[in-house]
Simulated assay, not measured.
Amino acid sequence: MTSDDPRVIGALWGVDDAALFGSQLRDALREQGVRRLQINMSDDAVGAAMRIGHYAEPIEAVVFCDGGAASNIVESLCTVASDVAAWEAEVRKPLDPDLPTGVRVDALSNVAFLRRPAELEYAQWRRRWLDEHTQVAIDTQSTFGYYQNIVVKPLTDNAIGVDAVVEELFPMAAIGDLHAFYGSGGDKALLQQRLAAMMASVGRMGADRDLDLVPTSRYDFPLGE
């Protein structure tokens, strides 16, 4: 499933938590034509989850805005964080469950920033990711929400080099239990089989390096038409 809405994604540092979750930001985005705001916060609820960092400082929050003008959205995000990297993206939704709004989703939401390796042409990398890796990821993990954001263009200078942003939803138990992460139900052989298949697929598309993996708590805010 592909959304027709333009999407702006922002990685945030130096976040003012109260302003990020405050009504003033939502009102400003609504006036700019944003129909949906999603905030993914790297907080204590997911503090024990695995994190991988490529940027000099850990990403504190990731914001997804559907609809609206990109330049205005970036301006608004800069009012709630001291540093923002932003992208325009096309979103695909292989797994898109109904989720509650206005509250924390009961899940570990892993947000990964992917960079295409130099040895792969863009078309080859995209094919390996979207056409080959997608089903492997769904088959080998306990993922119940899966969103693929294909970067159309960077919107800020510090956003150059990121080719995709992926979000995967896992049960909270996955934070400390590999069987819960890979859906292997305590079967050690199945766990090893799924882990090996996943790592091989990740390696083929170059997502085993130059990666930012940000564990987050997700909040959804519909802003209306």
Results as ranks from 00 to 15, higher is better:
A61S: 12
H179P: 04
V91E: 05
D96W: 13
I9N: 01
A159N: 10
G67P: 01
T2C: 06
L211Y: 04
L130E: 08
L169E: 00
A11G: 12
M198T: 02
V151G: 10
Q32S: 13
D5P: 02
E60A: 10
S82D: 15
R51I: 02
G68L: 12
Q124M: 05
C65N: 11
V136E: 05
Q192W: 10
R92H: 14
S142T: 06
Q135M: 04
A159F: 11
A81T: 05
S217T: 15
V151A: 06
V91H: 00
L108P: 05
E75C: 08
V84I: 09
G10T: 07
E57G: 04
T216G: 00
S71R: 14
Q141L: 15
A85D: 01
V34N: 03
I73L: 08
W13R: 12
L12V: 10
Q192K: 15
D27H: 12
L223T: 06
M205E: 10
T134K: 10
G183Q: 07
A69W: 03
G183D: 11
E119M: 12
R7H: 15
R35I: 02
A70T: 08
D83N: 14
G161F: 13
P222H: 11
A112Y: 07
A174Y: 03
L191D: 02
R204P: 00
E132P: 00
E60N: 10
D66A: 08
A18M: 08
T143W: 00
S23H: 13
N110E: 07
L191F: 07
R7A: 15
R104D: 09
V105F: 04
A28L: 09
Q141C: 09
L120E: 08
D5M: 13
E88P: 03
V136C: 05
R128T: 06
V214K: 01
L20N: 05
G183H: 08
W13S: 07
E75R: 14
D66H: 14
Y219G: 01
A174T: 10
W125G: 06
D27C: 14
R7D: 09
L190H: 03
A49F: 04
S109E: 04
L155Q: 11
A89K: 01
N158W: 08
V15K: 07
S82T: 15
P215A: 10
A196W: 04
V151R: 09
L223Y: 10
R127F: 10
V8Y: 07
Q135C: 00
Y219W: 13
L130Y: 13
I150Y: 00
V15E: 09
V74G: 02
N72I: 06
I138S: 03
A200F: 04
D17H: 14
D131Y: 01
A18L: 11
A137Y: 00
Q24R: 13
A137H: 00
F113P: 00
Y182I: 01
T140Y: 03
K93A: 05
R115Y: 02
